[in-house]
Amino acid sequence: MKKIGITGQNGFVGSHLYNTLGLSPDQFERIHFERDFFENDEKLDKFVAQCDVIVHLAAMNRHTDPEVIYTNNMELVKKLTASLEKTKSKAHVLFSSSSQEEKDNLYGKSKKEGRQLLAEWAEKSGGKFTGMVIPNVFGPFGKPNYNSFIATFCHKLTHGETPFIDQDGEVKLIYIGELVKEIITQIEEGKNRDLYEVPHTSVNKVSEVLGKLENYKKLYFENGEIPALETAFDLNLFNTFRCYFDIKNHYPVKFTQHTDPRGAFVEVIRLGIGGQCSFSTTVPGITRGNHFHTRKIERFAVIKGKALIQLRKIDTDEVLDFFLDGTEPAYVDMPIWYTHNIKNIGEEELYTIFWINEPFNPEDADTYFLEV
């Protein structure tokens, strides 16, 4: 089992890597990191000494003064290098650099020089080093106006604002899940690579990305329809978009119910893609679920009885409660990385329709059990 520490553990890439490593507890032990470790030599040395692998992600991306970015990022690398030397570490250090390296800016300069410093440490100490030059990354929970133009577009479209394009052009992109998989592969291989350019997984014009997101807003955000998702990029972009909703206020979404003397008719879901649709009855007091997905799209629709649906993002303590009643049929969709359940809180059987975008495959279930 490898002991892995992540500087910048709570950042965009760091949190996704930390959570994904947690899905394989028999392979990886996560060594906890906190931001103030860089301000306390003793804490930093203790952290470094425990690690077989250190993924150095902590960095400043944006500031009004580029000199502050350069100074901050270089200082972090120097402190980490000093701690590695002091503890006589032989760890495998992976460094997150950027395609900005070759551009004439101080952020790119800090990344290039930081990578070179750590490569020199590895050569002198007998440790291992992988310098990863990473393309533009997007995915759920990125900060708008900071991590990615996609994060900014998603936030604006779901919060009543209008996104705009500063400069259109083609952008090389990688989804956060794909990047995390790449980092884990590099950890497992354990090779010295002073410069490794992580391959991008798609190339898209900014205007094309915005067009897709505007379509998701119209079809899904406003009308609950799952759009056609023809490529892996489409699925990843859609799952990213879904994570920017104000979930507390968006759900539950009430269905349009048509009634006549024969009874009632409700359209549960309109699809641009296929998937698996299931029906369940649940006796009073019983809870189903308590699991999360990292890629699947799922809808719980209550059509009879009273239910409590609960969601919790797996690295937070906040539980979101949604009360649904079959007299007013409604649904809640499950964002990825949110553990969820459904409980019958009524006195009669609960009738629920479940839809998920891919049939269950026990060899690749993408279902991780965790109490809400």
Rank of each mutant, 00 (worst) to 15 (best):
M1V: 05
G8H: 03
Q9Y: 05
G22E: 10
S24G: 07
Q27C: 01
F28E: 14
E29Q: 15
I31K: 09
E34D: 10
R35E: 06
D36K: 11
D36Y: 08
F38A: 04
N40R: 04
D41G: 13
D41E: 15
Q50F: 09
C51K: 07
D52Y: 08
V53Q: 14
I54V: 10
H56Y: 09
A59H: 00
A59Y: 00
R62L: 05
H63G: 01
T64L: 12
D65Y: 08
E67F: 12
N72R: 12
N72T: 13
M74F: 12
K79Q: 02
T81M: 10
S83E: 06
K90C: 14
A91C: 13
L94D: 13
L94I: 12
F95A: 00
S99F: 12
Q100E: 05
D104Q: 15
S110C: 09
S110V: 06
E113H: 05
G114D: 15
R115T: 15
W121P: 07
E123P: 08
E123C: 11
G127R: 04
F129T: 03
F129D: 02
G139E: 01
G139R: 03
G139L: 08
P140N: 09
F141M: 07
P144R: 01
I150W: 00
A151G: 03
T152R: 00
T152D: 00
C154S: 12
K156A: 03
T162Q: 08
F164L: 06
Q167K: 03
D168Q: 09
V171G: 11
L173F: 11
G177R: 14
E178A: 13
L179Q: 05
L179W: 08
E182V: 12
T185G: 04
G190M: 07
L195W: 10
L195D: 10
V203K: 04
V203T: 11
S207L: 12
S207Q: 13
V209T: 07
G211V: 00
E214N: 09
Y220Q: 02
E222Y: 14
G224P: 13
I226W: 09
T231E: 08
A232V: 13
L237Q: 09
F238A: 10
N239E: 09
C243A: 12
C243Y: 05
C243M: 11
C243V: 09
Y244N: 00
I247L: 11
N249T: 11
N249P: 06
Y251F: 13
Y251T: 07
P252I: 03
P252S: 05
H258K: 08
T259V: 07
R262G: 02
F265G: 06
V266E: 05
G272A: 13
G274C: 06
C277G: 15
F279I: 15
F279K: 09
F279D: 08
S280A: 15
V283E: 15
T287K: 05
H291S: 06
H291W: 05
H293I: 15
T294P: 00
R295C: 04
R295T: 05
I297T: 14
K304M: 06
G305S: 00
A307R: 04
T316V: 11
V319E: 02
L320W: 00
L320H: 01
D325P: 08
A330I: 09
W337I: 04
Y338K: 03
T339D: 05
N344E: 04
I353N: 01
F354E: 13
N357F: 13
N357G: 11
E358H: 14
E358Q: 15
P362F: 14
T367S: 12
Y368W: 05
F369L: 04
E371V: 10
E371Q: 09
